[in-house]
């Protein structure tokens, strides 16, 4: 693994900010939509803003609105969030190995703000250089307030926006993730890991729709990496 020296903090901060800009542009319409849906589900503007600020996890927030009863059942919603966000436990376990340059409280803070995009960009960064707190702060400093404010805007303004998926906006995230995966393609066993993960996740998704496909695919990929033949394509 090539470990380039980290740049000066302002440069690192700017790099983190720039890396997440496309993800922010794509996430804002979904946050607006989330807010717009909340009124129909009996969630007040203040409640929706609080949810975005404290939970800060889009997928689980959409799922929560689906299951939001009157009154909401706290343990059911908590359990659902746990299942939907279980992938963050895996991401956390992986990311924590790259937080060596962070003070102890900084690690906690970084992980609390770890959404899929921030995690993926941080992993990609850590593959070539030292992951710095300044870079991570740059990733979060704009992403977090835009998510919370856009949710509030949607809740206040109602359905300003049609389904962002019809505009293909969800493919911005898919494109980002595909590019990040492709960046790892010279790692040993890359194709074996991808094949195992794809196979297991698709099979699980067909049998058991929901959040489990991510865990199954990730587990299969890791097993192949651990017990598959050593070496393979790419450099070791």
């Amino acid at each position: 693994m090539i470990e380039q020296e980290a740049s000066a903090p302002p440069t690192e901060f700017r790099d983190g900010l720039v890396a997440t800009l496309p993800a922010i542009v794509a996430a804002v319409p979904f946050a607006v939509l989330l807010g717009a849906l909340s009124g129909d589900r009996g969630v007040s503007v203040a409640e929706m803003g609080l949810m975005s600020a404290l939970v800060f996890a889009g997928a689980s927030q959409f799922v929560a609105l689906d299951g939001w009863g009157v009154p909401p059942v706290w343990w059911l919603l908590g359990l659902t969030a746990l299942v939907v966000n279980l992938r963050h436990a895996l991401m956390s376990a992986s990311l924590v190995r790259h937080l060596g340059a962070f003070p102890r409280w900084g690690r906690v803070l970084a992980l609390l703000f770890m959404v899929d995009e921030a995690w993926a960009f941080a992993e990609a960064r850590a593959a070539t250089r030292r992951l710095t707190p300044a870079f991570y702060a740059g990733m979060v400093v704009l992403f977090y307030p835009s998510w919370v404010l856009a949710t509030l805007a949607g809740a206040l303004a109602g359905s300003l926006i049609e389904d962002p998926a019809a505009l293909g906006l969800d493919f911005a995230f898919i494109a980002i993730f595909v590019v990040l995966v492709a960046g790892f393609r010279h790692r040993p066993r890359f194709f074996a890991v991808v094949a195992a993960s794809v196979g297991a996740s698709v099979l699980t998704d067909l049998l058991l729709p929901g959040a489990w496909s991510i865990m199954a695919g990730a587990g299969a990929g890791m097993l192949v990496a651990a017990f598959g033949p050593a070496g393979g394509e790419g450099r070791a």
Binding site: E123, R187, M222, A226
Partner: peptide
């Protein structure tokens, strides 16, 4: 292998 395994499982 975790980053690749997780991202592939999200995407597939």
């Amino acid at each position: 292998a975790m980053p690749v395994a997780i991202l592939s499982a999200i995407l597939a």
